[in-house]
């Protein structure tokens, strides 16, 4: 059985806990961003753009069985690293699990103060959009 949303969050918190230095944390985040596969051009549509980010962010979702699978991309690699974590936490779960998810891991990274305001608006927009997809799929 796949791990729960909470288990993945705990795993991420543990991974980031290994770094004392902010630069190491960011290098890891940048690395995650670089490793996330790019979205194919036909999915980089205006429709898939998430508003409220300084760089363009695209999010695509589809239902496979009873689970929702997310794919996303961004022009900015740090944002892409953040998206990569959100996908790892939320993708391959049911609509109900995604809608109910409490994403506390963001606050525990020691990055939330840094990602506050303008930038985290982007992050919060992403979470909101992912939950909106879940809601839309559950209504079908």
């Amino acid at each position: 059985m796949a791990q729960s949303i909470q288990e993945t969050q705990e795993e991420l918190i543990e991974e980031f806990g290994l770094f004392d230095d902010w630069a190491d944390k960011y290098e890891y985040l940048i690395d995650l961003g670089k490793k996330l596969p790019s979205l194919s051009d036909d999915l980089k549509t205006e429709e898939n753009v998430i508003k409220g980010c300084q760089s363009r962010v695209w999010l695509h979702a589809e239902k496979q069985g009873d689970q929702i699978v997310f794919e996303a991309d961004s022009e900015a690699v740090i944002v892409k690293g953040l998206i990569s974590m959100l996908i790892r936490v939320l993708s391959n779960h049911t609509a109900e699990e995604i809608m109910k998810a409490d994403l506390y891991f963001i606050d525990q990274f020691g990055m939330s103060q840094h990602l506050a305001q303008t930038r985290s608006n982007g992050l919060l927009s992403m979470v909101k959009q992912m939950k909106n997809y879940a809601l839309a799929f559950s209504a079908k």
């Binding site: 902010w22 630069a23 960011y26 940048i30 300084q54 760089s55 022009e75 900015a76 690699v77 740090i78 944002v79 840094h114 930038r119």
Partner: peptide, 21 residues
């Protein structure tokens, strides 16, 4: 090859305030 936002985020970690966008 680098988005301005990424540079702005990292420079802020060095205590440097510039504007990107």
């Amino acid at each position: 090859g680098i988005h301005p936002q990424d540079l702005g985020v990292l420079l802020d970690k060095f205590g440097i305030a510039i504007r990107t966008g």
